[in-house]
Design a protein around this nucleic acid. Sequence first.
DNA 1: AACACGATGGACT
DNA 2: GTCCATCGTGTTA
Length: 189
Amino acid sequence: MNPLAPSFYDRDALDVARDLVGALVCANGVTLRITEVEAYRFPGDTANHARMGRTPRNAPMWGPPGHAYVYLCYGMHHMLNFVTGPEGHAAAVLIRGGEPVDGHDVFRVRRADGRCDGPGKLAGALALTTASSGTPLTGEIAVFARRHEPTLVSGPRIGIDYASEADQLAPWRLADAVSGQVGSRKRLR
DNA sequence: AACACGATGGACT
DNA sequence: GTCCATCGTGTTA
């Protein structure tokens, strides 16, 4: 079983996001089946971290597809993204939820409540920090294609009050229609 | 050097 | 539903 090749990520972030729901992500002894993602597109997406240009933090977003972009949010939660699109296009997919499919014992230590339905929880379950930002998705963090296509639901992205109204409404949050490891379903359909 | 703030999560009412 | 911990980052001066 080989990790997904960089070409998989060399497309629009929304298209990659659709194909990532159901895919497997493996890191530090835990494998998760991805259940929820958000696409951050480029250019013109006012919710995108790279909307103001290149900075040291978001540098991986500007690089080649198929790499991780990990950042610290609110001073305590790490967020895992997969860089998409051609090099020079600062687009990415935020990984927001997952179901453990391997490494259950380790997972239980990291998430005693068994919950993995938010981006901070997911990065914590995989024990990822900014130390892994910029690394390829074929190493410490590895991603594998899904075996079965899930039924998708979509809705607006979470926590982007600073973005334009149109970008706040864009249904670029995608989730498995039936998984329990998905955040609020209130605006998903 | 100072400052404002965030792609959240957990505790609590 | 509300409150807020906590700190790296980007901006302004």
